[in-house]
């Protein structure tokens, strides 16, 4: 009887402890990641939406240079994303978040996924807008906007850890974008080759990401 009583007391204490932990920590990680992205990327989101508004306005004003205007908007997005991924270094935040659950490596991972999703969404929006406004051919759209975007983002993802200054980060992004546009005008074969490398690197990156997520699942909280 005494033993049973002790056991029930232990169960009660364990239950209370579990309730406290459940109350304290976020049990749904997606919800927490969403909260994090809303706080961390609000400057990026505000600027991207504002830029989108201006782009649409310019497209209506300069109907004969629609593709160039959109291309300019995507350069702007690339610059913003360069700043977004670099600013943790810029403001010395790495040390203070290093001992937290969402550490700099996870921040980089979540930001990269969010940036890719936002840019893809903008790209689809851009294509639909172009289709509605003027007949644009898909290959031209891919060459002038999609491939430069992939290339510059891929290069930035790889280089950002070596970069030590915001201007250099943004310069790298803009430079790689401009390089791809130039390549698009020079030779479509060179561009196709560059793009296949980008796709291959992205594939490896996704595999690495999947591995990280799997290992996180194994070692999740308690």
């Amino acid at each position: 009887m005494n033993k049973e009583h002790q056991l029930s007391e232990i169960f009660e204490i364990c239950g209370q402890e579990l309730d406290e932990v459940m109350d304290k920590y976020e049990s749904r990680h997606i919800k927490n990641i969403w909260r994090f992205l809303k706080l961390d990327m609000r400057f990026y989101l505000k600027s991207a939406v504002l830029g989108l508004g201006f782009t649409m306005l310019w497209c209506c004003l300069f109907t004969n240079a629609v593709l160039s205007v959109w291309s300019g908007y995507f350069i702007f997005l690339v610059l913003l994303s360069a700043y977004q991924q670099y600013r943790i270094k810029e403001y010395d935040m790495q040390e203070v978040v290093a001992g937290c659950y969402i550490n700099p490596a996870r921040i980089f991972c979540y930001q990269s996924i969010a940036l890719a999703l936002i840019e893809t969404f903008m790209l689809v929006l851009c294509y639909l807008f172009l289709l509605a406004l003027t007949p644009v051919e898909l290959p031209e759209f891919l060459l002038k906007i999609y491939i430069p975007l992939c290339f510059s983002q891929g290069l930035l993802l790889w280089l950002v850890k070596y970069i030590r200054h915001t201007l250099v980060a943004m310069g790298t992004a803009a430079g790689s974008y401009a390089l791809t546009i130039w390549l698009a005008n020079c030779s479509q074969w060179v561009l196709a080759y560059t793009h296949s490398i980008c796709v291959f690197v992205s594939f490896i990156y996704l595999l690495a990401l999947a591995k990280i997520l799997m290992s996180q699942k194994e070692g999740l909280w308690n």
Binding site: S27, F36, L39, Y91, D92, M93, Y101, I102
Partner: peptide, 23 residues
């Protein structure tokens, strides 16, 4: 101690709470 200069005190603490995985 690094911080984002344009965050308010409350926003900064909320940001830190999120990275600490707090509800």
């Amino acid at each position: 101690f690094g911080y984002y200069p344009n965050y308010t005190v409350e926003d900064f603490l909320e940001y830190m709470a999120v990275v600490k995985d707090l509800s």
